[in-house]
Amino acid sequence: MKLKNEQKKVDLHLLNNNWSTQPKLMNVKFILTSFLISLPWLVKAESLDFLRSTGKIYSVVVVILILFILISAYLIRLDRKIRTLEEKNNNES
């Protein structure tokens, strides 16, 4: 029993280590996969009543959020690409 627990700890440790070495990529992939997996449930969700309340104003809020999030995502990607370029330049000089 004890052995098993210890092994578990080690595994968790390894897992944590793995996460800390390449956090960003893993996070993006994780979020994307979980989003894709949950998509059918999201689409099926009948409890959208909150968004339908007060004249469906919250669906407009969702639309604005999507606009903002996707534009930000594009800018973040660009930012990251520029940063790798900068790092490369710094290393060379």
Partner: peptide
């Protein structure tokens, strides 16, 4: 490339709007 991002935004926002007026994403 920016136009593609805008197109994706248009599709996503359209899906939300369609859900609340036409009934399906």
């Amino acid at each position: 490339s920016v136009a593609i991002v805008y197109g994706l935004i248009g599709l996503a926002t359209g899906a939300v709007w369609a859900k609340f007026t036409w009934g399906a994403f």
